[in-house]
Design a protein around this nucleic acid. Sequence first.
RNA 1: CGGGCUGUAGUAUAUCGGUUGUACAAGUGCUUUGGGAGCAUUUAGGCUGGGUUCGACUCCCAGCAGCCCGACCA
Length: 431
Amino acid sequence: MTKNITNGMRQSILFTKTRKEAPADEVSKNAEFLVRGGFVHKEMAGVYSYLPLGLRVLKKIENIIREEMDKAGGQEVLLSSFQPKENWEKTGRWESMDDLYKVSDSSGRVVALGPTHEEIIVPILKNYISSHKDFLAEKPLAIYQIQNKFRMELRAKSGMLRGREFIMKDMYSFHTSKEDFENFYEKMKDVYKTIFKRVGIGHLTYLTFASGGTFSKYSHEFQTISSAGEDTIYVDEASGNALNKEVLTDEVLGQLGLAKEKLVEQKAIEVGNIFDLKTKYSKPFDLSFTDAKGEKHVVLMGCYGIGLSRLMGTVVEVLSDDKGIIWPESIAPFAVHLLVLGEDEAVLKEADKIYESLQKSGVEVLFDDRLGMSPGEKFADSDLLGIPMRAVVSPRSIKEGGIEIKKRNEEKGKVVSLDELQKICLKKSIN
RNA sequence: CGGGCUGUAGUAUAUCGGUUGUACAAGUGCUUUGGGAGCAUUUAGGCUGGGUUCGACUCCCAGCAGCCCGACCA
């Protein structure tokens, strides 16, 4: 159960509906299921709006990431999306970054729509950081936010996996020494692993040695194995580590102590990436501090990204079957999908009672109380939406003594009483 | 940004150089209710702009949009 999310929703008043047909122009599985289920609405290539069900999933992912960032000592902010051109000229990226959205207003002023926020966070920190005393031994200086990012992708594709407007968590860390940076960087590797585990794709996600792109020579990516991925990585099953094809050289293999013949080639989706920025962004803005001896040093930086929208698409991509999505309990829009079949008064009343009492006991439940729908339609919708537990109330289930429950990833269900159902659900929400 | 394919109703599709047909969705009525029901009835469509033609949704050109491949890519 998540604090900022309501417990119950009646499907009869949910404004979105499922679609039987997949959008014709969309082949990626994540887009097909998310659009058909009414989780998101596509506005244009690589741009999606989040509808009630999709927003619930997004918030769950957001909360997991926020919890882990806070635990790691991060402080949350929300930086502006409009970014001054001058800042980008200072780092030399106004011209070099070809996917930068440059927008102008009627006064002729030109700004960038933030694709990332080094150019914003560093000048802000300059207002507050000047001494070694501004860095505390017991708490890292790490600032993060969760926000929409804009990138003029020449080719948006694969549904939520590569968008022009997307949601990202970006954290920036600041350090007075290489050692301090490295400690934090290593810690973040574990934090990231925890996050991917919690959202349900830990078993498919590998810490991957990769190129640092425009930031640094090398970086670490978190890659989730999926045929929908656009990256090719080489996995060493024994160590659980991997490296990206782009850095596959004998020299790198030697550094990592990996043997070429033991590596397995896989397609993967990059769900996270962490970088050693060194002084690349602190230097242009002269973000520096004075040490105890009165000497000035440039601050060292790291940055740590996770694409939330991409993560949502990735989960659908890797955890679904031909009928629909199979959400992990941790990020499912609801814990239970309660269906009532038929229109018998007594059965409807009983289902209503069950809905109310599940809600009261803190179980997140989507109640398919829609009338005039055949059982088949309700089952098909339920499979598509992918809520982990389905609970059916019908004349038959009542005759058999209660509610027929079935997990989304199981074939057969069983009949339980309301008490038992509540117990099962509550036990889960404690975990 | 190079290449390919596509653009018909809310969605998915069909046919046609001469009144765009169907399914689902939606509305109404009745029946039906454990794996996307049935009958009746109603509503709703040719991306935009040019050209060819007696006549264009159909052929041609341009634009725009979408998808796929590649390049690119925090």
